[in-house]
């Protein structure tokens, strides 16, 4: 859904674990940005009403980016920066 520009400034990378699979991602990304880059919006989250949802605002307002980070559910993915070894699970079952 999103691609990184070739002209992007080179930054460090970190390894994150998305549902047990490792990925290298630029260290400037938020968790939500990493997910959108790796997997697109379609599989981001299942809402309490059973519908599929994905980040809307990316600035901490909408709470559509809720995700489980290092075992802690309902974190705002757009506000949490990726970190080395971080474990991320998408919330696919309606909570």
């Amino acid at each position: 859904m999103f691609k990184q520009l070739d002209s992007a400034a080179s930054t460090g990378e970190v390894t994150i674990w998305l549902e047990g699979h490792s990925h290298r991602v630029p260290n400037t990304f938020s968790v939500a940005a990493a997910l959108l880059w790796l997997e697109g919006a379609a599989g981001y989250r299942r809402h309490v009403d059973g519908s599929n949802r994905a980040p809307l605002c990316m600035m901490g307002v909408c709470h559509e980016c809720l995700i489980t980070v290092d075992g802690e559910p309902n974190r705002q993915g757009c506000l949490v920066p990726v970190a080395e070894g971080m474990r991320i699970e998408r919330q696919w079952r309606a909570l």
Binding site: M1, F2, A8, L36, W37
Partner: peptide, 10 residues
């Protein structure tokens, strides 16, 4: 924000 944060474009 995606553009600024990670040089991400559609």
């Amino acid at each position: 924000i995606l553009l600024k944060q990670g040089a991400l474009v559609p």
